[in-house]
Design a protein around this nucleic acid. Structure first.
Length: 113
DNA sequence: ACGTTGACTCCTA
DNA sequence: CTAGGAGCCAACG
């Protein structure tokens, strides 16, 4: 159970918190998230989201390095993910590819420092 | 501890 | 574009 198990599991928490911090109309790649969070492999990011897929988390804003949507997105699949991205006003290059040139959320390590 | 799985990424052909 | 292989690391049985 989970009785709330939102237990702050390290990996989980970091990924969730970061994904929730992604602004609307922007997207992030697994590799970037992993790198920024200090994770060792982009798989960890995907794994974390898949295990939680909490609707409080804009997981649809996380895409592959090329901007392509994940082939196994839960909650409805690619179509649902694409639809959510369109709602977020995210520019698309093709049916399942986001325009990273415009929508890529560039991570800042020390915003304002 | 081991083996499998997985929302990744990179390579070659 | 597809197909196959390798590297990567955390969670689960």
């Amino acid at each position: 159970m989970k009785t709330n198990s939102q237990n702050n599991q390290p990996t989980f928490n970091k990924v969730r918190d970061f994904v929730k911090s992604i602004p609307r109309g922007k997207v992030c790649t697994y590799g970037q998230v992993a790198s920024h969070l200090g994770l060792k492999s982009p798989r960890i990011v995907g794994w974390a989201l898949r295990g939680n897929q909490d609707k409080n988390i804009p997981c649809h804003r996380v895409v592959q390095k090329e901007g392509t949507l994940s082939p196994s997105f839960s909650l409805g699949g690619r179509e649902e993910q694409k639809k959510r991205l369109l709602i977020d006003d995210t520019p698309f290059l093709s049916e399942f590819t986001v325009d990273l040139s415009k929508a890529l959320y560039q991570i800042k390590k020390n915003p304002q420092t």
